[in-house]
Design a protein around this nucleic acid. Sequence first.
DNA 1: GCGATCCTGGCC
DNA 2: GGCCAGGATCGC
Length: 284
Amino acid sequence: MPMPELPEVETIRISLAPLIGQRVEQVSFSKLAPVETTTPAKIRQALTDSTIIAIRRWGKYLLIDVDRRATLVIHLGMTGRLLINPPTPPLSKGGKGGFSDHHHMSIQFADGSRLVLFDPRRFGTISLSSKPDGSDNRFLSRLGPDYLDPALTPEIFITRCRRHPGLSLKSLLLHQGIAAGLGNIYACEALYRAGLSPKRRVRRAPDDPLSRLLSAAREILQLAIKNGGTTLRDYQDSLGRKGQMQNFLKVYAREGLPTADGHGMVKRIWQQGRSTWFCPEVQK
DNA sequence: GCGATCCTGGCC
DNA sequence: GGCCAGGATCGC
């Protein structure tokens, strides 16, 4: 299963570049397509006969802009995948209306290519926006600045953090309203890189460590993008390529093992119902 | 702030 | 059969 965070979505975004300039001929949805706050009919209406002019990313959201003030906003959740011209899998029993199981949206282009959204768990969402800044979209309007947006200065990051003094640093990193793009893997890795305990509360973290945390998060995210994302099970980009970042993770999923760079033992704890891996000897 | 919840699939 | 999963929202 792919479970994309910022670097995986960025890798997918880059792999979708061939779609820019393509004209949308047809859009179809499965019965269970995770369409939110709009309807398949409205999306079809907004996209059919339009041309894709840009593909952007904001946090873990992918934004597909067309040439008539419409943007298709896609979140891949835990198991979403976008595939260009996937080999048609055999229709299994749940497959209906030409859709195999879990293929929830298909966009057919004038040149004959096809973009398919696959999402078995349906934690992802498909929505629409008609404003470039996403302010009319329920999801984008709540999102903080992207971690890689240069406009997110350490000062701004710290100010946004201070609004949530009771949060643990781990919860802070996962909170997409403060800054957007980190998920469980890179939150764990950023905290390790910054030498900060995931349990420490924001109110007990001076400005310097918070600034360090932002830098560490950015470094990890950039490194992960350079490596095409993390493939733990079978994450792949839209052309089926796997990532290599799994070879550079230091603490994630290493309970009971030393950190990958040998600086101490890794412990696993649970925070807000999710696993956190960290190294108490390194992270204070 | 935290826990429950939405889903399916893979793995033990 | 039970547990776990890379996410985010909602209600308390």
